[in-house]
Amino acid sequence: MHEPLPRRHKRLLRLQVNGRWREDAVADGLLLVDYLRDVVGLTGVKSGCDGGECGACTVLIDGDPVPSCITLAVRCEDRHVETIEGLAGNGRLNRLQQAFHERLGTQCGFCTPGMIMAAEGLLRRNPSPTEAEIRTALSGNLCRCTGYAKILESVQAAADVAP
């Protein structure tokens, strides 16, 4: 005899995503990365390791960089979530996106959204970070292509631009 499958409970989740309030019915166990990609349609958030170790899924929650692959969506109730898609305004890249483009801070681009979101969190807290502070802020974000030199240059260039 088979045991019945556990029932998945759903709840209404209210949160702000990239400046817009949303309400969606979500399962209690839905991860934020899956909510953003599958429900909201924001595919800039990447799922790399599913364990909070690579940083590809980094988003800002109330301004703080957080790995969305280990964060339950329901834990974001009434909070502000920002993704890479929310940084550009009026069809223009923000200073970090522009710096990554100009300074060649991307290769394959898979890690770039999470890398930029981690750097954005840093620059909001500290507009003029040292190289050591940038390295620390990005230490949870892995890149398999660049060797990090161009990424560091990109963040430093963005820090030199007034917001």
Rank of each mutant, 00 (worst) to 15 (best):
D64G: 06
T71R: 15
V39K: 08
R135H: 14
Q98S: 12
S68I: 07
C69D: 12
R135F: 11
P127K: 10
G41Y: 05
N90T: 01
A99P: 06
N90P: 02
I134L: 06
E120Y: 04
G109T: 07
C111I: 04
G86A: 04
T106Q: 07
M115R: 03
G91S: 11
H80N: 14
R37A: 05
T58P: 09
L30K: 07
L31A: 09
A73W: 01
G89D: 07
L31K: 14
R37Q: 09
S128H: 14
G109Y: 08
V59F: 01
A73N: 08
A137G: 03
G109C: 10
C69K: 05
T136L: 14
A119Q: 11
K46T: 14
R79G: 01
R103C: 12
N90Q: 14
V74L: 10
A56Y: 10
L93G: 04
V33N: 04
E102F: 00
R79W: 08
F100K: 00
C54W: 13
A137C: 11
T58N: 10
R135P: 12
R79E: 13
G121S: 05
R124Y: 03
A27M: 06
G55P: 12
P127D: 10
Q97R: 08
I116P: 08
D38T: 05
G105R: 03
I70E: 01
S47H: 12
L122C: 05
C76M: 07
L122Y: 06
L138A: 08
P65I: 03
P113G: 04
C54R: 08
V33P: 03
L96S: 04
A27D: 15
R125E: 12
F110L: 11
G109E: 06
D64S: 13
P67F: 00
Y35F: 15
L96R: 04
L32D: 03
E53T: 15
E53Y: 11
R124M: 10
L87G: 10
C76Q: 05
L32M: 03
E77M: 13
C108K: 06
V45A: 07
I61Y: 09
V39G: 03
P113A: 03
G41F: 04
G89I: 02
L60V: 08
H101G: 00
N94C: 09
D62P: 14
G121F: 03
A99F: 02
D50C: 09
D78K: 15
G41H: 01
G109H: 13
S47G: 11
K46M: 04
T58G: 07
R103K: 14
I70C: 06
T130M: 10
P65Y: 12
M115A: 03
L104K: 13
D64H: 13
E131K: 09
H80T: 13
Y35G: 02
E53R: 14
C76N: 05
E82M: 10
L104A: 12
C69H: 08
V81P: 03
E133V: 14
A27Q: 13
H80F: 06
M115Q: 13
S128Q: 15
